[in-house]
Structures are given as C-alpha cells and as structure tokens.
Write a protein that binds this DNA or RNA. Structure first.
Lengths: 350, 350
DNA sequence: ATGATGAATGACAGCGCTGTCAGCGGCGCC
DNA sequence: GGCGCCGCTGACAGCGCTGTCATTCATCAT
C-alpha cells in the first residue's frame, strides 16, 4: 500500500495529519463543508435531511472537530482558564467543581493551573494560559503581580477574582472579606469569655488571604481587647498541613502558656491542633479553646466539634461561572463585585 | 477615527481580532515573520542581533503568541489532558500535582477534567478533550466504556492509565493492584488475630477501584478465613465522606456485632469511623479494629493512629508524566506497564 | 402572474501561525 | 580562484475550521 494510486496524482499533502477533517465528512455526506459545520454547531440552521446525512457521516468516520482550527477561525476558544494556589487539601476543590459544572453545562471547558501560592509562578501561568486565548479567566485571590494585572487587563476578556475582596478588582470579583471573617471569630470568642487569643496561620507564604485573616484578627484584638498583645504564630516550613496544626498546639502552649484560645487560619490547622490536644490529654476548650476557618467536612466530626467559619465554597464557583458566561455573551456588561459573605459556625471547641 | 486613511485602501480585515500578531512584531523588529517565529521557539536558530530585535519588539507590543494558530500549523498542541473521577478529598490531588510539575517543566500544559465517577460522563469528557488534540492523555482507572477505549486508541496519542492495574491497557499503565493491596490488609489483620472482618466502601458508584478492593478482600477472606462470611457494607448514598465513615461504624455494630475489624476502602471512611468510635466511647482496636486505605496525612494523627495502605500517589503522577513526554518524543516506543506497588502501614488501629 | 420574502445551501477568503525550501553571503578547502 | 559548506534569513503555502456573502428555490401576499 505504499504506491501512489495511479488515478490520482501522488500529491499527498505535505504535512498530512492523518485525522478526519470536516471536508471528508462533507464529501461523504454529500453536502458542502459549510453545511457540515452548521449541522454540528447549530442543527437548527440546516434541513433535517442534511442534518441526518451529516450525523451519519460523522459517526461513520469518527470525526472529532479540531478545536484549534475552530478557535482560530472564530476567535473564540470555548475555554475558561482558572488559576488557583493549590489542589491538595483544597478548599478550592469545591469551587472548581462548581465552576466546572456551571461552565460545562454551557459547553465551555476549564483549563486549570496551580501557582503553589507563588505570585511569580502565577504570572507565568497566566501568560501561558493567555496564549490559548481563553474566553474568560477565573483567579483565586485578588493579590497579583502588576505584570499579571496588566496582562489580564490587556487580554480584554472577562476576569473574575475569587475568594477575596478588593476595592480595586481587575474586572469582577466574587468572594468575601477574609478580614471581616476573622474579626467575626474574635468577636465570638470574646463574647464567649476568652481573653488571650493567639492567631496561627501560614504567613511565610505569599497567601494574601492568610494575611488578610491575620489583619482581621489584629484589628479585632486591638479593638475588643485593648492592652492585649497580638499573638501570632507562623507555621512557616510546616506549611498548610495537619502536622502544622499539631505543631501549633505545642507552640502556643510553650510560647504563650497564658493563651486561652488558638485561632487558626484554616480548619486543617485546627484539626491537627485538636488531635494533638487529645494526644496530650488537654481539654478543649477547657485547657485551650480552638477555632478554625473553612468548615471542612471533618470539622463537625471532631471531638470537640470545631467552631469555625463557613465559607461559600461552591457558591463562589457557581457565581463565578455564571458571571463569566454572562460577560462572554455580553462583553460590554458592567463589572460586578459580589460579596457572598461567610457564616460563623459555633460548635464546641470555642 | 472611523474614516479610512487616504494613504491606505480602507481594506480593514473583516474579522479583526484586535490582538497583536506575529506579523506586527516582525514589522516592528524589522525582520521576517519566520525569524520572529524561530526567535521565540528556538533562539539558537537566529543571530543574536535578530533575537534581540525580536525580543524588544515582543516586549514593546506585549505580544502573546496565539497557540491555536500554532497548534493548527504544527499539529502539536503542547497540552496533555487528564481525566479523573473527582477533586474533593482527592487522593488524586497529589498525582495531578506531580503530573503537572513534570509536564510544565517540559513546557506542556495540563487540561483537567473530572468525571464524577461516571463512565458515560468520562466518555463525553474524553471526546471533548480529543477535540483539543492533546499530545497525550492520562486517565485515572483502567475501566472505561468501550467507546472511550475506542476513541483513545484511534487518537494515536500516548495514553497512560493510572491508579489501577490491567492486563489489557489501552496503551501504558502506571499503578498498582488495588486487589492485591486489600489482600495484603486482610493478611495483616488475620496475622494480628482478627477473625471477623467487614469490608466497607462506596460500591454503588462506578468506581472500579473500590470494586477491585472489595474483590481482593473477598479473595483473601475465602482463602485465609475459610467458612467466614464475606461481610460487605456499601456507603451507598453517603458516597465518599467522613460522614459515611461515621455511619459505617454504626452499621457494622448493628448489622455485624460479631465483627472485630472494619476494613475501609479509604482513609476517609476510616477517619469517620474512628471519630465516631471516640464519640461512642468504643475502644479501637479493643472493641473494634479499623483499617484504611491511602494513608492520608491525617491518618497518622488520629487516635489511635490508622493502620492503612500507602499508595504511591505522587510517584504515579511523576511516572505518568515522564512516560507521556517520552512517548511524545518517540511515538514508536513500546507501551509500558509500570507496577508501582503499595506499602502496608501498620499503626495502632488494627 | 409577479415580486418580495425567507430558508437552506455553497463558495471563498482568511484566522495566525509553522514547515519547507530556496537564497544569500561568508568561510575554509583543494 | 572555484567549489562546497554552513549559518542565517525570507517567501510561501497551508493547517482545518468559520464568518460572510451570494445564490438558489419554494412560499406567500399582491
């Protein structure tokens, strides 16, 4: 089968990709390529007979449209890019899931990238994503390098920042105030009678949300517990892990033995701290109270059940998806800032 | 500015996309488009002077190459697609992370999709992904619809199935035997003196790995504990959650009060079961022993610390990435089946 | 019967790149 | 001095689609 057919000139195209193309489907179906294109994208536009002929040919050839060609011709990619800090332990998993559900219902695919809580890496990722000409982009966080902001602005596509709050979003923002959430926690613990709180989070990293939470803690302590020192523990090289939480419990007992409540920037830390307290035979909240952040599923099953803040994880994803889709449909719509709030959940640990 | 310039004919391109193109960069740099393309993709090919002129023009114009055009022209997309069952609680998060690290080091981007443990949905996702002409594809699991297998075979790109084992992979497979892993657990508990095990997992879903674990359990029980009934609990509508684990503990106590060890198909269940045992004041392993699967970070912090099986989460991702890259470079390489094994971790819960 | 409408279709250029080939000048070699 | 060689560059076609416009034909009101 290596010989050229005698009936046709041996003019095989130079770079034959070997895959079925729209033209071949058209030839088989006995219609023009235009009709095949229409039948696939919007059956309403073609007659029933044409539609059926095309579908038969598509099945027969196992035709899979080449989206790269489609993107190029239509200048729409049918994709949305999302950049998030991490996947493990992901608070963001629910957000991504909801986002993907929202988008895929509209036939839009999600491109996912993780920055590892690193804004320089984030910039690289955004640059790479922009090369794929997504129709929109979803970011976690509202803190980015100036380069990232600039690129995003220039891309002229809808941008939704999430999980954070800002008065100066790039475009749209869907989130809540991490700062206010921590303030709310401090208000609760003060009301519950605790007077010597210690904040704990991963502050070595570039996680602006952790920082916002820290700031909210500091504000509230200064306001509600005047004269009280602002105790802050950084998990540093322990990062975001259960182990870091266990370590934190030791730290607070050693470094701040007077502290009566450990205010964690994540349920992950709080989980580790509670388990470590169990191990040490410490009573929670008797010997030390503990609060979390995020209301993970495990938190209500711990002993004691964790007092925490519920964040609108999947609502963020859903709304972000809706917003992106709306703005793809109407690029001139005004930017939207959506504060989804948070819900303090008081259980037994504080 | 709506008037056509008198000097040039008013032949504005019909569908102007408004973004900077390679041609514009070339004009500004004073070289041909070919040279710009080369300078960007492989600086070695052009003179230093040309390279610098191009880079200056790229900076000045904020040029971002259009990958859709590049894909179309070169028939390579620079992407790899990955399909996994879920993201929440994700055992797979580490795998994806390692995979992404491996690929992005080679300048390849990862397209991620989740099937929700649904093989029909998986097929849709694969179809959609294939439209983007990825250079390779990574699947979680070795059980797919025939349609999926067929598409994947026809795509003529490297395919790596993961987290599972099969004698008849589509192309490559990197994983371990879930069946054998459960057998190993049963061997341990029998050796430790337990005689009445109950297996628990989410069997209502189409998770073939859960099923393989169940089968491994059954095999081992029949072999090592002849005469013993094969007790199996399905979390059913509770799915994969901590809550399901708590529920399981209740179930095993009620339905199989004689059972002395609960063999969970995931550390998530085991975690819920241990916490529920704490709540009920049951001694673990005294009243009932508990084993998990996956060795999540929290497992070693529980009380008692969980006996489980460590799976090569990120090694799977790393190897899968390497394999994909190798096979992109050399499409004629022979398929590889890589059994990465597993490691039983004996702690205090069984 | 006639023109006006509208649905369905086809022709064609072009989206922004890359592969390929040809051409240019400078160099070392016989 | 002529030859081949090599590094670098530019011209050009074409990847597989879609937007746009032109065309056809049946349908309808006049």
């Amino acid at each position: 089968m290596t010989d050229a057919e005698p009936s046709a000139p041996p003019r095989l195209t130079r770079r034959n990709t070997g895959t079925v193309t729209l033209d071949e489907v058209a030839a088989l179906a006995g219609v023009s390529p235009s009709t095949v294109s229409r039948a696939i994208r919007d059956p309403e536009q073609v007659s029933l007979a044409a539609y059926e002929a095309v579908m038969r040919a598509v099945d027969e050839t196992n035709y899979v449209p080449n989206r790269a060609a489609s993107n190029l011709a239509s200048n729409r990619s049918g994709t949305v890019a999302a950049v998030m800090p991490a996947m493990s332990y992901s608070v963001f998993a629910d957000t991504v899931h909801a986002l993907e559900a929202e988008l895929s219902a509209a036939g839009v695919q999600l491109f996912l990238g993780t920055s590892g809580y690193d804004e320089a890496r984030e910039e690289q990722i955004v640059r790479a994503f922009l090369g794929r000409r997504p129709d929109g982009i979803v970011m976690v966080g509202a803190s980015h390098t100036e380069g990232t902001r600039e690129m995003l602005r220039r891309a002229r596509i809808p941008v939704v920042e999430t999980w954070d709050w800002s008065d100066d979003p790039i475009d749209c923002i869907v989130g809540f105030s991490n700062r206010d959430a921590l303030t709310a926690i401090v208000e609760h613990i003060v009301e519950a009678g605790y007077r010597h709180p210690t904040f704990a989070g991963w502050l070595t990293g570039v996680d602006s949300r952790a920082r916002a939470r820290r700031d909210g803690f500091e504000d509230a302590v200064r306001r509600l517990l005047p004269g009280e020192p602002v105790r802050v523990l950084d998990t540093a090289e322990h990062g975001i892990s259960v182990e870091a939480g266990a370590w934190l419990l030791g730290q607070v007992r050693e470094q701040h033995p007077e502290s009566d409540v450990l205010v964690c920037a994540s349920d992950i830390f709080a989980t580790g701290a509670i388990l470590e307290a169990q191990r040490r035979g410490l009573a929670v909240p008797g010997d030390i109270a503990i609060t979390g952040f995020g209301d993970f599923e495990i938190s209500r099953h711990l002993h004691p059940a964790l007092t925490t803040v519920q964040t609108p994880d999947d609502l963020i994803g859903r709304r972000a998806g809706e917003l992106i889709l709306e703005r793809i449909a109407d690029p001139d719509a005004a930017p939207v800032s959506l504060d989804l709030g948070f819900t303090p959940i008081v259980r037994d640990s504080a």
